[in-house]
Each structure stands twice: as structure tokens, then as C-alpha cells.
Computed example of a mutant assay.
Amino acid sequence: MSATPPRNTPAATAPVRVWDLPTRLFHWGLLAVVVALFVSGKVGGNAMDWHVRLGLGAGVLVVFRLAWGLVGGRWSRFASFVKGPVTVWRYLRGQLPVPAGHNPLGALSVLALLAVLALQVATGLVADDEIATVGPLNALVPEDWASWGTRWHKGPGQTLLLVLVGLHVAAILFHRLVKRHDLVRPMLTGDQALPADTPPSRDSALTRLAALGLLGLCAAGAVWVSRLGG
């Protein structure tokens, strides 16, 4: 006579590939670019030439991530982690298990960061600091648009981006220290401890080659945009 298995036994877990290599490189690359943008913007002077280049680089990464959110690995796709308000509310009430990749609340943070970064890049393209640096598309937009873009880029946009980055870091620390859930390691290794039957993200050599091609297209687009005003 066999013993009855205990109820509510936790499912066996195993390392599951959640973040494909392109997503991980995007994440850490964007972090480096954003830090460099803040530093070069504060230093000013000759560093502003690099600020413009880095801004175009940030634009390349944002466009790449938006596209990769449609065709990338399973857990990098927006469809896998962008949820409705009911799911977000259930997650906040602790009614959902630890998800693969971004949790429903973290998804909102990702979307907000991408949106604000996209707006910062767009306004930087038309900005004019009235000293020595003019965005490559400044001459192609009405003067009042350029004026608004400059004010937003140097003021509210920068502040909002800092706030979002701060909240992002605070959420990582909260999960690590309070919930004992490490969000950083999976973004380094790509793997997360999940139920063994969790489907992994596609992360093959072909996938990575496709991502490289997509990144190249985004970079070519940035070069084309940078030359429009010239």
C-alpha cells in the first residue's frame, strides 16, 4: 500500500534560462550608457560631444529592446510579463507565485523607464543648450518645439528618469533584503530557480545572431537620423 503524497508539496525547482544573452547585454549596456550620459551632461564642455553620441546609443538600445520585446526569448517578450491591473493587484496581495523574469509590478517599471528614456532621446535630438551643443534634428523642428524639448530634457525629464532609476534600484534591494529574492544574479547568468517544468527562453547561437543583426539595423537607423539635420 503506497503512502499518500503530502499536500501542498513545493514543486521541484531547477535553473531555467529566463534572460537570453541579448536581453542581459541590453540591460547592463543601457545601465552603463545612462550613467555615462549623466556624467557627460554634468561635466559639459567637450564632454557634450560624447553626450550626444551616447544619447544616440541609448536610442539604439531602447529601439532594440522594443523590437526584442516582440521577437526575443519567451520571458523577454512583453506579452510574457506585461499584465493587466487585476494581475498586478493579485501580485501585490501575494496571491501569485514567484514569476519567471519580471513580476507584474516590475513590468510597469520597465515600460516607464523605456518610455522616459525614449522621450529623453527624442528631446535631446532637438535640444539646443545655446552654448555649443545642438541636437542633430534641431533645425528640422519648429522653434517652440525645440525650446520645449530643451526645457524638458534638462529639467523634468532628467528628474523623472532619476526617480525611476532610484525606484528600480530600491525595488531590487527590497526583493533581495526583504523577500530574499535575488533579481541581479539571473540578469548576470540568465538562469532563475523555477519549477522544473517552466519553459525556458530561446537563447541559441541563431537567436543571438538574429539579435546582433537587429542591433545593427537599429544602429544604422541612428546614424541616418544623426545625419538628417546635417
Rank of each mutant, 00 (worst) to 15 (best):
residue 43 V to N: 10
residue 44 G to V: 06
residue 46 N to G: 14
residue 47 A to H: 13
residue 47 A to V: 02
residue 49 D to K: 09
residue 50 W to H: 12
residue 50 W to K: 11
residue 51 H to F: 12
residue 51 H to A: 11
residue 52 V to H: 09
residue 52 V to T: 13
residue 53 R to I: 03
residue 53 R to S: 12
residue 54 L to A: 13
residue 57 G to V: 12
residue 58 A to L: 15
residue 60 V to D: 01
residue 64 F to A: 11
residue 64 F to D: 01
residue 66 L to F: 14
residue 68 W to Y: 08
residue 69 G to R: 08
residue 70 L to Y: 12
residue 72 G to M: 11
residue 73 G to Q: 09
residue 75 W to L: 09
residue 77 R to C: 02
residue 79 A to N: 12
residue 80 S to L: 14
residue 80 S to V: 10
residue 81 F to N: 08
residue 82 V to P: 01
residue 83 K to W: 06
residue 85 P to Y: 06
residue 89 W to P: 00
residue 90 R to H: 14
residue 90 R to P: 00
residue 90 R to W: 00
residue 91 Y to S: 09
residue 91 Y to T: 02
residue 91 Y to F: 15
residue 94 G to S: 11
residue 94 G to T: 01
residue 96 L to E: 14
residue 97 P to M: 13
residue 98 V to D: 07
residue 98 V to G: 00
residue 98 V to Y: 06
residue 99 P to W: 09
residue 102 H to N: 04
residue 102 H to P: 05
residue 103 N to M: 08
residue 105 L to P: 01
residue 106 G to N: 04
residue 110 V to Q: 09
residue 111 L to M: 14
residue 112 A to D: 03
residue 113 L to W: 10
residue 113 L to G: 09
residue 113 L to S: 06
residue 114 L to S: 02
residue 114 L to F: 11
residue 116 V to A: 12
residue 117 L to P: 04
residue 118 A to C: 01
residue 120 Q to P: 00
residue 120 Q to M: 15
residue 121 V to G: 03
residue 122 A to Q: 04
residue 122 A to K: 10
residue 123 T to C: 11
residue 123 T to L: 10
residue 124 G to F: 07
residue 124 G to H: 09
residue 125 L to F: 05
residue 127 A to F: 07
residue 129 D to C: 07
residue 130 E to M: 12
residue 132 A to V: 13
residue 137 L to I: 03
residue 137 L to M: 15
residue 139 A to P: 00
residue 142 P to F: 08
residue 142 P to C: 04
residue 142 P to D: 08
residue 143 E to H: 14
residue 144 D to C: 00
residue 144 D to R: 15
residue 148 W to C: 02
residue 149 G to I: 02
residue 151 R to W: 14
residue 152 W to G: 06
residue 152 W to R: 11
